[in-house]
Nucleic acid binder design. Structure first.
Lengths: 224, 224
DNA sequence: GTCAACAATCATGTATGCAAGTTTATAGAG
DNA sequence: CTCTATAAACTTGCATACATGATTGTTGAC
């Protein structure tokens, strides 16, 4: 097996978490993971430490690693942070986007439209991420964009739950429309304001879902 | 030896980097550090991985760990990100700060004034960080505040250089005054705007210092 | 039957060992 | 004398071993 194992493990675990195959609160047993990936505990530990540093995993000393489980307060705060990051991206993207950036945003938006028309939530889910990613890239600031992507992925497990809510997909798309228009017209402050609201409304809607999530996590914790 | 070694090592190394005792670009030899801290390579590696994830250290596969050295572009982008984070903090702090937060900000500002009057850069350097930290805390958003602190520390090695520039201390303090006034009057957008400018001006001034920094780093790389 | 104390088991945190890749030193060709 | 090829030395990345704190199960008291 050539190439380093740790980066591969980190990606695999992160993908599992983002995709929801590993659920918030779930325990990540080192020996179990080591067996599953056919490596020793060392690279597993190093991957878990990296994921903990990025917020995807919580390590409790001497007690093990768990998929990060955000409580109500942390969820609200995380969405608020995300809203501010997105707003900043919108402000800068409106000023600096290139023709390529513009095309990428429009393409992603068009794909979102298709997913809405088809009523395909899974596809919309992916295209939505692509639309936002196009805005991050359009800032021309790679470090800011990387932070935005990281937080987007951090919240992905929760967004997934969120999109199940009826009518949210249509509302989300309508908001995208307004955001895109502001961006294309170069109105940075307006784009920022709309992006902030777009993200915050998700966070607010979440308050209704948190109790359900907590129950689910508790059940998981009890089961194993 | 009670307690775990890794967190202690991470803090010690991070403090060394933030305080400038370990300089950007410097190599971090695992066995050397292991000997210095009288532990094995394992906890050293884990600490380095954590620092790499937070951006303080860069790990190049099979080639070792180095204190993160930001190039011109990365520096500009990092300062821009910091400016946006600070702006967001100011906006939220103006809305939500408690009486205690207000008192903390005013106290830090008063200490800054004392340092300016005494012409004591080292003290101003510390009190400046405390003033900004008080704003972060006043947002009431712990996750946002933690991000702000992290980025503040990431840029600290470069700020340190920056403050050597003549007259910067006075200008900085004058800007603080304006920021504090906006905050106390509850003018979130104004506070955000002033904070953004306050941070960005540092980034811009840096462009004049980057070549000097690069030379220093090159010399270090050649020497060690 | 419930609770508490204790013992056995298990997982984590650290140390050590080893293989593979990188860097540095050396020798030879031009 | 410079440049290149080669080999020795070193460092990292992973595997394995072991000690300590956590967890679980059992036994006994009430």
């Amino acid at each position: 097996m050539r190439g380093e194992a740790t980066p591969r493990l980190r990606e695999a675990l992160e993908d599992d978490i983002v995709a929801g195959r590993l659920k918030p609160g779930q325990r990540l047993d080192e020996v179990g993971l080591a067996e599953r990936f056919d490596v020793s505990r060392t690279p597993i530990r190093e991957a878990l430490i990296q994921l903990a540093a990025s917020g995807m995993v919580e390590i409790r000393p001497r007690r093990g690693a768990f998929v990060a489980l955000l409580g109500p307060r942390e969820l609200i705060e995380s969405f608020e942070l995300m809203a501010e990051i997105e707003a900043a991206c919108g402000r800068l993207a409106a000023r600096r986007m290139t023709a390529d950036d513009r095309a990428a945003m429009q393409a992603a938006h068009a794909d979102c439209a298709r997913a809405v028309a088809a009523g395909d939530r899974e596809t919309y889910y992916a295209e939505n991420a692509r639309f936002h990613g196009a805005i991050y890239a359009a800032t021309g600031n790679r470090i800011l964009a990387a932070e935005a992507v990281r937080h987007q992925r951090l919240l992905q497990p929760y967004r997934r739950l969120q999109l199940r809510v009826a009518r949210r997909m249509d509302a989300s798309f309508a908001e995208h429309q307004g955001i895109l228009e502001a961006l294309l017209e170069g109105q940075g402050d307006l784009a920022a304001e709309r992006l902030r609201a777009h993200v915050l409304v998700q966070g607010e809607r979440f308050l209704n879902l948190i109790s359900a999530l907590q129950d689910e996590a508790d059940a998981l914790a009890r089961a194993g």
